[in-house]
């Protein structure tokens, strides 16, 4: 078990078309943020995805390399919050061309950095991804054999 979730899919469409579907608000609303999306497509740009029943989920664009890479920090679990390092994960879309088709890969990482707001002022200097990973892997192994 690691701190990153990855999923990959091959789409039989040209990379430019897939890029547009992935980055244009009117298209994002068709496959993801059904009640509307805003995205200012440049590093530091604001991003908001809306679902009527859940609210507005916010993010901030990190990288835009048309038509290959889009990454953004995203607060996927609490509505109406601007992203920071302790409430958001990093979502990265990577597009590759293969013979007229497009391979889309999404990575979501940084779950280990999420801080429980109920725990108050956690000792942030003591928080390390490595620590979390090491602990988690050992425990995952333990959980399997138990």
């Amino acid at each position: 078990m690691t701190d990153t979730i990855t999923h990959e899919i091959t789409i039989h469409a040209l990379i430019e078309r897939v890029w547009d579907l992935l980055t244009q608000p009117e298209h994002i609303a068709r496959w993801y943020a059904f009640d509307g999306a805003d995205i200012d497509l440049r590093p530091g740009g604001r991003l908001a995805f809306r679902w009527r029943e859940h609210g507005e989920y916010r993010g901030r664009v990190e990288r835009v390399e048309k038509p290959h890479t889009l990454s953004f920090r995203f607060v996927g679990h609490v509505p109406d919050q601007d992203p920071n390092l302790h409430n958001s994960t990093l979502v990265t879309f990577t597009l590759r061309e293969r013979g007229g088709s497009t391979i889309v890969r999404v990575d979501e990482s940084g779950f280990a950095g999420l801080i429980d707001p109920t725990e108050g002022t956690a000792n942030k200097s003591a928080i390390s991804l490595e620590g979390w990973r090491g602990g988690f892997e050992a425990l995952a192994a333990y959980a399997v054999q138990a």
């Binding site: 280990a112 707001p117 928080i127 620590g131 988690f136």
Partner: peptide
């Protein structure tokens, strides 16, 4: 939210 508590708990190397 509950899972976050788990991640936060495990984020500290000594706690791990």
């Amino acid at each position: 939210r509950r899972q976050e508590a788990v991640f936060a708990a495990l984020a500290d190397p000594m706690r791990s």
